[in-house]
C-alpha cells in the first residue's frame, strides 16, 4: 500500500492542546493520521481504513532523567501507541478509535489539575526567563547607544513574546479554576 505524506498547517499553542487533540481526531476521521508534530504544521499519512483517537501529554525532563522508554512502555501497556514528541516535552499518543468511547490520559480531576499546573508552570518559567533576558538586552542597548531603530523592534518582539506567555499562563489558570470551582 502506498503511504503518502501530507502536510497540514496550524499554529499549535501549548495552552490549547485540547483543541489540537480535537483537530487531530477530526483529521484522523477523514483518513489523515499524524506522524510528526510541529509548531506550525504536522506531517500526516493517509489511510482511509484506519481511525485513531489522539492524546497529548506534557512531560518535560526526560532528556535529563532518561526515563523516556519506561514512560512509553507504561502508556503502551494502557493501550496507547507512541506517535512522536515535540521538543521532548510534548508527547503524542494514539489508540484505535472506538465508537462512543473517549479515552483520556487523565481520568480524575486531581491529576488533570496537576497536569494543567505543570503546563502553567512552564509558561511562568518562560515568562520570567524572557523577562530577565529582555531587561538585560535593554540595559545593554540603552547604555551603549541610542540606536532607536534597534531598540524599538527589540521591544516590539519582546512585548509580543511576553504577552504570549502571560496569555498562556492566564489561560491555564482559567482552566484550572474552571475545574476546581
Amino acid at each position: 500500500m502506498e503511504v503518502r505524506s501530507e502536510r497540514k498547517y496550524r499554529l499549535n499553542l501549548s495552552w490549547d492542546y485540547d483543541k489540537e487533540e480535537a483537530w487531530l481526531n477530526e483529521l484522523s476521521s477523514q483518513g489523515l493520521h499524524l506522524k510528526k508534530a510541529g509548531f506550525l504544521s504536522g506531517a500526516f499519512s493517509r489511510d482511509e481504513s484506519a481511525r485513531y483517537t489522539y492524546s497529548l501529554d506534557y512531560q518535560p525532563g526526560f532528556l535529563k532523567h532518561g526515563k523516556l522508554q519506561e514512560y512509553i512502555d507504561l502508556y503502551q501497556d494502557a493501550g496507547w501507541e507512541y506517535v512522536c514528541t515535540y521538543g521532548g516535552i510534548w508527547h503524542y499518543f494514539r489508540r484505535a478509535w472506538q465508537p462512543g468511547e473517549t479515552p483520556r490520559l487523565y481520568t480524575d480531576m486531581a491529576s488533570l489539575v496537576t497536569h494543567y499546573r505543570k503546563i502553567q508552570r512552564m509558561m511562568g518559567i518562560m515568562l520570567l526567563l524572557n523577562m530577565g533576558i529582555f531587561l538585560m538586552n535593554m540595559m545593554n542597548l540603552l547604555l551603549r547607544n541610542n540606536l532607536w531603530t534597534i531598540v524599538i523592534p527589540v521591544v516590539g518582539i519582546y512585548v509580543l513574546l511576553l504577552g504570549l506567555f502571560l496569555y498562556g499562563y492566564v489561560k491555564m489558570g482559567r482552566k484550572i479554576s474552571k475545574l476546581t470551582r
Binding site: L105, Y106, T107
Partner: peptide
C-alpha cells in the same frame, strides 16, 4: 475506577 495512563504515571 479506571486509572488512565497519565494519572497513573504522575501518581
Amino acid at each position: 475506577v479506571k486509572i488512565g495512563a497519565g494519572t497513573l504515571y504522575t501518581a
